[in-house]
Amino acid sequence: MPWSFTLSLDETTYPLGVVQRTVYALADRLTCLVAQQPGRVSLEVMPLLLAGEGAPSAETARALLYRNLNDFALRERIRLETQGLCEWLARTALKEAGL
């Protein structure tokens, strides 16, 4: 019987976009159902059926999820703090191409 568990996450710490990017990144190993409640995002997690014997254990999956959630939350923080700079760079660098 494949394992499953549910994480209930504080949406302030892990906004929906962060959760979605985490789920996307781990899609080759885990199947996740994402649901929103007021102030919370819940993840129902189970191993990807296609992963077969390469599927992680529940303990490994939990560690993998939290590490990736924290990493994507940090990436989102960096993105917000540097917002606009990437677009400025591309616009300035490529303006001679009419872009």
């Binding site: 940090l74 990436r75 960096i78 993105r79 703090e81 540097t82 700079l85 990437c86 760079l89």
Partner: peptide, 10 residues
């Protein structure tokens, strides 16, 4: 100092 845009990978 302030951050400039960057990405990271483990």
């Amino acid at each position: 100092y302030r951050l400039l845009p960057f990405r990271f990978m483990r």
